[in-house]
Amino acid sequence: MSKPIVATTSLAGCFGCHMSLLDIDERILDLIELVEFNKSPIDDIKTFTKQCDIGLIEGGCCNSENIHVLKDFRKHCKILVSLGECAIMGGLPALRNGIAIKECLDEAYLNGPTVRDNDKQIVPNDDELPMLLDKVYPCHEIVKIDYYLPGCPPRADLIWNALVALVTGDEMKLPYEVIKFD
């Protein structure tokens, strides 16, 4: 039987969840025995080359590119997992949700105390740039999400247990220590 295929991405996240994935330490050797990676920052494969079994999503959606990538993941993965606070609830980026987008842009590019050398008062608007969304959305409001792994970041053991459970089909181990926050 071929190995299950895993894809991962970081949308509006800080890569902390990916760091936590790497925190499984030497078990990463077991992991590459257990699964094959496709599109992921871990192996730097930029586009899907085949259908995958598991997609791990870090971060929520703050711009049109995030939406595009997330929908692409849904198309290519049998199971999607929201990994961490931002994917599940928007997280830190969602702090801007109470503020109008224009106000955010003005503060960042025109009026903020650290703004320098913007005499032409330009707010970046190149068509190559993704379009910002009115607010940061959790992934499950955009596509169907099958599982959620909470934490900021989720602990390495939690990610490991989840992956092993998904791959082996066994029930997941969820001791209190793995999902408590303080």
């Binding site: 049109s64 109008a100 987008i101 224009k102 842009l105 608007n125 379009m131 910002l132 969304l133 009115d134």
Partner: peptide, 10 residues
């Protein structure tokens, strides 16, 4: 709907 505000602003 979601990109309208930012496109308007820029």
């Amino acid at each position: 709907e979601a990109v309208k505000a930012s496109c308007d602003a820029t």
